[in-house]
Design a protein around this nucleic acid. Sequence first.
DNA 1: GTCTATAAATTGATAGAC
DNA 2: GTCTATCAATTTATAGAC
Lengths: 179, 179
Amino acid sequence: MSTRDRLVESTRELLRERGYVGTSPKAIQQRADAGQGSMYHHFAGKQDLALAAIERNAEDLTALASEELSSPGAPVERIATWLRREREVLRGCPMGVLVQDPEIIASDTLRSPIAEHFEWLRGRLREILAEDGLDVRLADTLLAVLQGGYVLARAANSTEPFGDAVEGAIALLERATAD
Amino acid sequence: MSTRDRLVESTRELLRERGYVGTSPKAIQQRADAGQGSMYHHFAGKQDLALAAIERNAEDLTALASEELSSPGAPVERIATWLRREREVLRGCPMGVLVQDPEIIASDTLRSPIAEHFEWLRGRLREILAEDGLDVRLADTLLAVLQGGYVLARAANSTEPFGDAVEGAIALLERATAD
DNA sequence: GTCTATAAATTGATAGAC
DNA sequence: GTCTATCAATTTATAGAC
């Protein structure tokens, strides 16, 4: 992996672990085993690195969700497959955590790619819900269950609330479909 | 308001706006119009202030939810009242945002009061769901919808996803009750 | 491309006078 | 109780040699 790539991967990890405000250029360099000069050669600064990390996050997460949501099966089955994907819940959602960071929210440059990712997911879920004639607002409900599940799990320091939240939502959805 | 109280209120605001990592003692003092010496007289340091702020958050939020969830009306109606309470969505949940902060998650002292608050809410919701014979796991689903709604709203810089998530959840719940 | 030096500002306290 | 001084460490770079 190139120095540049190591810097981006290091930033992705640190953003997830410590947020944007809590991540220092120095920490990024150390984890990437790169020097100060090297980092500033490849990137203009902290924000530039964060942008690259967020864009790579978006690519990865879009690819995963896209595949799950397009698999064969009934609409609700595909949604359940996506919701039940194994996640490192206690580490937080790579995108969701960022949205709580004051400096990311204050910067359209950094917030936009995150907003676009959620917007894409929402659109894809709406299409699938519409196949079954379900209320398309449920796209936001399902996304919220996932993001909120992470929050509850971290508060409790346990993955249990995440699992319960997801299973509860799937059960409600199945009942709504059985008409 | 006493200097001590102003310091706590100042900390509550800053924790919500900027998180724990992003909040400096200096900023707390300036917003509270208190000097350095004054702050360190009343509190042992940043963590001590955060603890006081979190505890006051918990008191306020518990009082609000307690009242809404105990109002007259059917179980699902009471839950809907609580979910539909007007919130300053784009400012984030005073408790939920904190849970994404690396130093709060790393400190049991700071995380515990937050965990207890969610635990209390979960228990209260379970009691209410049980009244209608509903799956008690839905307590976590509903809490997650709320917390996730905040996340989606902040990502989109719009309150719309929050409203859709909540209304979608209420609609599902009403349908599940109509048996 | 990578390295070292330098730096102004901020962070989170402590010390001691009033 | 409140104030000012001081401080070691960190933050986020920039400059310029190699």
